[in-house]
Nucleic acid binder design. Structure first.
Lengths: 277, 277
DNA sequence: AAAATAGTGTCTTTCAGACAGTATTAA
DNA sequence: TTAATACTGTCTGAAAGACACTATTTT
């Protein structure tokens, strides 16, 4: 059963009350917000302004507004994630750029002692954003910034246990690691790489997204042909970029996201041999 | 941030802190437990013994034991799911069959009014089980049974809104629908179909798992060759089944699950055209 | 005997990846 | 002018799917 047993009246409720069921549990949302800057994958982090983990970087997040028994002011989990993201980036939650950010639930983390103070269940969300301005440190955060993922020294083993990297608070290294792996996989069979670009982009720009997320170089010619061959992945604008590549080359054509929700056939990572066994 | 507002000093925090000051939020786990019976996909359901949704079927689930501020008796989310599954199926939680059940987190459902009484956040888990005995109705459930998924009349639209199907309580139709879609996808690129079989199985048995989950017939010859060609999917026992097919045919060979964690190349569903756009 | 099934062989089409080649641009 | 880049063409090998075929078993 999903919920507490119904009570016939107050006294029966008190008689049947089981403190175990009603031990205080807090529910938060944390957001793994990813973007591409200067060709490198970045994640939005805030620096904690108070204990525990004071001074360490952490994923942006906060409490879900439960809204009380009446349900007034209650917010959905995804709405809470959007609100936190908007608060940290200083962008308006409605309309504008934030409406074009892809947001999906990543997973829920509820190990008994992941927060030293109390039982906290955290619902993590994953966001793919186009390039955004630097965030403003607001509220309880001492600082906020887009941080290159590579600079965090995240490894498979380091991400497993909290505190190992000494860089991210709580189990946020693990959450980020899971988010990165999800992102890598999503790029294979969905057109979500376009969510990292603005409204219009070139195929080489799209390729640089794949290269930043997957961490490996792709063959330019084959990538180009592949993208154009998948139905609904991208759609030509008929326009051409006003500049060629940084160090030369013709001006690439511009494209918009297409109407496909899945890539078929998929665009598979070249080297995933390690993950198979 | 993951946690309550940071305080300037610890004593101030403790003095001010009262869990009950926060809006009450309950956290439950619900389990979408799938198995194959008579060649058809079944899900474990319980019939609710009290309001709301009295008499309706629901996913098995229950409260997470938060363990209080000290953390004693606290259980992890996955442990809670195993416990609920064990309670409902009457199987021992440690060792035995239940150790061979694949369990993974499916998602978290926390819409403000998904439970009419209070704010409930439900962490859903997805389980792939080999054929298990009929469950015993226990605790607060009026009944418990393996129910053919097809009999529930789940459709894409019916699963979207709670109460539409008039068959499953709360938003459990949506959760089940999400679980089924996850299961269909997992069979494509992981060897988890073997989790529906016992320790040893034949290729035709494995094919019937795929057919039950995907809801479409597969070409026997091509399926056979494909399964054997994927490294680490299955491993021959050298033995042969003691009976041929139901209505004739040679006795198929027996296999065990292999050591692959991912299928490469993947075993893709034939007809997924609809999902692409 | 008839029908169903397990397993294998073969052919065609599609697709990924390697490589080459041309035109266009920045430095 | 040089080098980098956008894009296209071509070839090869892998793999999916359609179909055919044999051998083995149940009814």
């Amino acid at each position: 059963m999903t919920t507490p047993e119904p009570e016939r009246d107050e006294s029966e409720f008190l008689a049947r009350y089981d403190p175990r069921e009603y031990d205080p549990v807090s529910v938060t949302v944390d957001v793994v917000a990813l973007t591409i800057r200067d060709g490198a994958l970045h994640v939005l982090l805030v620096r904690r302004g108070g204990p525990p983990y004071e001074g360490m970087w952490a994923l942006p997040g906060g409490f879900v507004h439960a809204g009380g028994p009446a349900g007034a002011d209650a917010e959905d989990l995804a709405d809470a994630a959007v609100r936190e993201l908007a608060e940290e980036t200083g962008l308006s939650a409605k309309g504008g750029v934030i409406g074009r950010i892809h947001l999906e639930q990543l997973g829920t983390y509820g190990a008994p002692r992941r927060d030293p103070r109390m039982r906290v269940i955290s619902v993590a969300y994953l966001a793919f954003a186009p390039e955004l301005p630097d965030p403003e440190a607001g509220g309880d955060a001492a600082d906020a910034a887009w941080v290159p993922v590579d600079a965090l020294g995240l490894t498979e083993s380091a991400a497993q246990r909290p505190g190992t990297t000494r860089r991210l608070a709580f189990d946020h290294a693990r959450i980020l690691s899971d988010g990165l792996e999800r992102a890598r996989g999503k790029l294979e069979y969905t057109p979500l790489a376009t969510a990292f670009c603005g409204g219009e982009f070139t195929i080489p720009e799209l390729r640089s997204v794949y290269e930043a997320v997957w961490g490996e170089e792709l063959h330019a010619g084959n990538f180009h042909r592949k993208v154009l061959s998948v139905p609904g992945f991208v759609e030509s604008t008929g326009e051409t970029s006003d500049r060629g590549g940084r160090r030369g080359g013709p001006r690439p054509r511009l494209y918009r996201p297409g109407d496909a929700r899945l890539l078929h056939p998929a665009l598979l990572r070249p080297s995933r041999e390690e993950q198979i066994r």
